[in-house]
Design a protein around this nucleic acid. Structure first.
Length: 802
RNA sequence: GCGGAUGUGGUGGAAUUGGCAGACACGCCAGACUUAGGAUCUGGUGAGUAAUCGUGCAGGUUCAAGUCCUGUCAUCCGCACCA
């Protein structure tokens, strides 16, 4: 036997798979289909790190197992290549983003191929490819046609460093998701997708899918549905109604003031009749200086200014109440105005204390002299509601009253906001809209798609927040598709998330020139059976892509309402220092280095063995050695294989148990214990001296999805028939997983006193008799009364004696 | 503040869901083979001399608790003045 030359063997089988198109998925096959999807990478200049490898290895194992189980498997890969880092590289180096992208994709592909992933390389998609983004634009136009696209001038999240407007999702925590600079607020006209129209559908759809519970929860929280009421408060000085949203209509009797956001339009409208307008303007200016992040920090010390000239009337008590502006009320949620109930809301309480406003208790149960009471209880000081429970009855009753009097109605609000859909940068899909002075916004005709990204000299964005495209006259100036007059093209591009919102559909039929995918292909492949990716994409990419897919379903372009039947998430690989891997910390591990030193099979095995797949785990080169040793032992075992077409008596139950464990653990992402079980089997074999041909063959089959190169090679070396990847997954028999003799523990009063080898079939009485015959046990119960005897089949005996 | 997760040997982590805690692996110790070992093989390895004690901490339920209940602490990750 020669020493295992992993490098040569891995190259050999990778070449074989490529030559034989081993992992090509077949459209229209009669086999059952299985669609396993992993998140396609952003091809950055630094290449992949081992985190990518872990992210793909999970469904890689599932895919290889499914093929052995007789499925026609679609396990595709592609590149989500539009985005700022590439463009920034282009600006810095002067190399065109197209070239940068091609180089990076090349690098990523070669890294992936070296690991031996069984992707269908004939279906690679690249979101920056004209044949791909043609359909991204096409879907955008369909949305435009269906009223889901609009422009609005609002305060937007703007990153001064990247010079782009960001969505809420991209500016969480007040930091730019790309460069981590502080976000500032800017008034700008930008594009939006009306994702809020799908809020309910996105929420409802979660009932029908198999996502991990915490993934569902995160999405639910992100959508943030709340139910309550809209109530109109009259203004004493004029005919205006101040409309508010509340989830607590039960507390209307406790409303002692109102607060509106500093940007609330009512201030501008009644500017002339507000006596302290200078003071309000000064406060507004003060607020505008704060970043969104500062403003949303929960602060105990509330600020605000009373509006002198606008007084509201509580529609239930008909009492006059003051109106304040304060930055703790946001224009972006509800109506930008609130009714304040200081007795039962901590923010209103803080504000009332500071400004000396009345606090009226309307729900019993707390001590409002000390703090706001936000719990439930019996209504007081509330006229018609007195004495009833606030949750059970008061809300319902108040809603009836509001409806009767015509001053309010039931309402629903979402935390999710419409999707700011634009970047003022070059490297993205051009938005296919023309601005015509007469016709307004006009869609580029479908037959003119793709609207190609024009070549430019200078990718640097304008300092005024204009896209570099705005500087190219030949691109900007065009004719209106509707009336033919001179018009101007939109120069914003789409945000990074656009291309990834539908890529899983393109994989089904990647070369289709007539449609984003054929109906037949979608019918056959969709939905994705299992989607695995990172937790960080649960509230962005996942929500966006579900939205696009649901829209396409509604216009009858797709056949399933949900794109992903099942979703799981892998844990991060941390650096060996226990910190998140990052270039700046210098703890990044390059898969190429590992493949060079240990081989692809060891890398694959280790990323799955290092811990719970769904949990974060630190990288350890030492631990990886264990995987290397295991594969070396599997290799060395070839010399000790004896003849035998059936499992031997000695190893039969071990074989069945191993098949069962590995088969089941793969399905529940418990790769670490699946691998441990195979190691255990090999240890047992080493102790027994040998295994036979049938047993070895099964071990190779089970190990194949994890370590495909070495197992294929051994399969060939051993002279088994055909190639391994064309065989079938081993079967097990539940009945044969049981050993004939088992060891059980004997406890006296819960303490272990002895171990006993018994026949598996022994009855309770027989086992107890055997237990009592044991010398240690007999000594322990000598002279005591046996109170209770418990036998847990196959596990233990517990005798309670006093 | 709200929500979620996690807490087990020197380390990464197992534990059939209430039934022998520490599988598997790393590391370490001893031995073998070697001119050599950061290679390989064999054995040992939670703590304690012992009885015993041990799953973040304090209680509780149970014949039996890492697992269930109550309280509490710590770490990590989301969201964050959401009316």
């Amino acid at each position: 036997m020669e020493r295992y030359d992993f490098s040569a063997v891995e190259k050999k089988w990778q070449a074989y798979w490529e030559e034989h198109n081993t992992f090509r998925a077949e459209n229209g096959s009669s086999k059952p289909k299985y669609y396993a999807l992993v998140e396609f990478p952003y091809p950055s200049g630094s290449g992949m790190h081992v985190g990518h490898i872990k992210a793909y290895s999970g469904l890689e194992v599932v895919s290889r197992k499914r093929r052995l189980q007789g499925y026609n498997v679609l396990f595709p890969i592609g590149f989500d290549a539009y985005g700022l880092p590439t463009e920034n590289t282009a600006i810095k180096t002067g190399v065109h983003p197209r070239q940068v992208t091609d180089n990076n994709i090349e690098k990523f592909s070669s890294q992936l191929k070296r690991v031996g992933f069984s992707f269908d390389w004939s279906r690679v998609v690249d979101t920056t490819d004209e044949d791909y983004y043609k359909w991204t634009q096409w879907i955008f136009l369909k949305m435009f046609e269906n009223g889901l696209v609009f422009r609005d001038t609002t305060l937007v999240n703007y990153c001064p460093s990247c010079k782009v407007v960001l969505s809420n999702e991209d500016s969480q925590g007040g930091k730019c998701d790309i460069c981590h600079s502080d976000i500032v607020q800017k008034n700008k006209e930008v594009w939006y997708l009306r994702i809020t129209e799908y809020a309910d559908k996105l929420l409802e759809g979660l009932k029908d899918v198999d996502y991990l519970p915490n993934i569902k929860l995160q999405q639910e929280n992100w959508i943030g549905k709340s139910t309550g009421a809209f109530v109109n408060f009259s203004i004493k000085e004029n005919d205006e109604k101040l409309r508010i949203y509340t989830t607590r209509p039960d507390t209307l009797y406790g409303v002692t003031f109102m607060v509106i956001a500093p940007e609330h339009p009512i201030i501008e409208k009644y500017r002339d009749s507000i006596k302290n307008i200078d003071e309000l303007d000064a406060y507004k200016a003060e607020c505008a200086k704060k970043s969104e992040f500062e403003r949303t920090q929960l602060v105990k010390d509330k600020t605000g200014v009373k509006i002198d000239g606008i007084t509201a009337i509580n529609p239930i008590t008909e009492k006059e109440i003051p109106v304040y502006i304060s930055d703790y009320v946001m224009m972006g949620y509800g109506t930008g105005a609130i009714m304040a109930v200081p007795a039962h809301d901590t923010r209103d309480y803080d504000f009332a204390k500071k400004f000396g406003i009345d606090i009226i208790e309307v729900i019993k149960g707390g001590n409002i002299a000390e703090e706001a009471y936000t719990g439930d209880g019996e209504m007081v000081n509330s006229d018609i509601l007195n004495g009833i429970d606030n949750k059970k009855e008061a809300i319902e009753k108040m809603l009836e009253v509001l409806a009767e009097k015509g001053i309010g109605e039931k309402g629903v609000q979402y935390k999710m906001k419409d999707w700011a859909f634009n970047r003022q940068r070059y490297w993205g899909e051009p938005i296919p809209i023309v601005h015509c002075p007469d016709c307004g916004m006009v869609a580029v005709p479908y037959e003119e798609l793709p609207l190609k990204l024009p070549p430019v000299e200078n990718f640097q964005p304008g300092s005024d927040g204009e896209s570099p495209l705005a500087k190219i006259d030949s691109f900007v100036n065009c004719k209106c598709p509707k009336c033919g007059k001179d018009a101007k093209r939109e120069t914003d591009t789409m945000p990074q998330w656009a291309g990834s919102s539908w890529y899983f559909l393109r994989y089904c039929d990647p070369n289709n020139a007539e449609a984003f995918a054929s109906k037949e292909a979608l019918e056959y492949w969709m939905p994705v059976d299992w989607y695995n990716g990172g937790m960080e994409h649960v509230t962005r990419h996942m929500i966006y892509s579900r939205f696009w897919h649901k829209f396409l379903y509604d216009i009858k372009e797709t056949n399933t309402s949900e794109p992903y039947a099942k979703r799981t998430a892998q844990g991060l690989i941390l650096g060996s220092d226990g910190e998140k891997m990052s270039k700046s910390r210098g703890n990044v591990v390059d898969p190429n280095d590992v493949v060079d030193e240990f081989g692809a099979d060891v890398l694959r095995l280790y990323v799955l063995f290092m811990g719970d797949y769904e949990q974060a785990a630190p990288w350890s080169e030492n631990s990886m050695k264990g995987c290397k040793r295991f594969l070396d032992k599997v290799w060395a075992m070839q010399e000790k294989i004896t003849e035998g077409e059936e499992y031997s008596d000695k190893l039969r139950s071990a074989m069945h148990k191993t098949i069962k464990k590995v088969s089941e653990d793969i399905e529940s992402l418990k790769f670490n214990t699946a691998i441990a079980m195979m190691m255990t089997l090999l240890n047992e074999v080493s102790a027994a001296g040998s295994m036979n041909k049938a047993e070895y063959r099964t071990l190779l089959m089970l190990l194949n999805p994890f370590a495909p190169h070495i197992t294929e090679e051994l399969y060939q070396v051993m002279g088994y028939e055909g190639v391994l990847n064309e065989q079938s997954w081993p079967e097990y028999d539940e009945a044969l997983c049981i050993d004939s003799t088992i060891e059980i523990a004997v406890q006296i009063n819960g303490k272990i006193k002895a171990k006993l080898n018994i026949p598996a079939e022994a009855s309770q009485d027989e086992v107890l008799a055997m237990a009592k015959a044991d010398a240690d046990v007999a000594a322990a119960i000598d002279g005591k009364n046996i109170v209770k005897e418990i036998y847990v089949k196959g596990r233990l005996v517990n005798i309670v004696a006093k």
